[in-house]
Amino acid sequence: MGFLVDAERCIGCHACEMACKNEYQSEPNVRWRKVYPINETEYSLPERNHLSLACNHCEKPECLRVCPVRAYTKREDGIVIHDQGRCIGCKMCAMACPYEVPQYNVRLKKMEKCNLCDGRLDQGLKTACEAACPVEALSVIDFNGFTKYGFVIALPGFPDPSITKPTTRFIKPRIGAQVRRDQ
């Protein structure tokens, strides 16, 4: 399982991110999902693109590899779960994840991250972020038997996917035409 981020539809509104915070009432500076405005210079024209990213539930999760206490497990369905109970707050995972995903909770002195709303999924609900997206730009897809094409594994601004093999897939944004002032 992984996220499908439709950058063509995404408007960078942060509703997904805030819905995640609302659902888990997380600490102010802990962001399981983050919407990144992508640097203008990543595209040829000054563009205002966004990437809504949470944990990529990677196929080769670095977090899982480096964690000394085995706080990370990868579920059968691919979800990378972080067990806060085991975590001792060594921050190794935060260093190792190329996507700045594990977030340190200063109050609990432990890491936390998106567990793909495992509880909600297990109840048959959509993830809180997917449910909140006003333009249906975000969804969770099951890779088993997935045959649709047209997805890419990275977009400008997304760090090298060869390291951890993220399961996040993207749909490219379309670039509209711009007519600028003559001055």
Binding site: I11, G12, P46, E47, R48, N49, G176, A177, Q178, V179, R180, R181
Partner: peptide, 16 residues
């Protein structure tokens, strides 16, 4: 301004 809305549009016209 080339706004986020302009970004999502097929065409953007920049007016004074």
């Amino acid at each position: 301004i080339f706004s986020e809305t302009a970004k999502k549009s097929d065409l953007y016209f920049q007016v004074r």
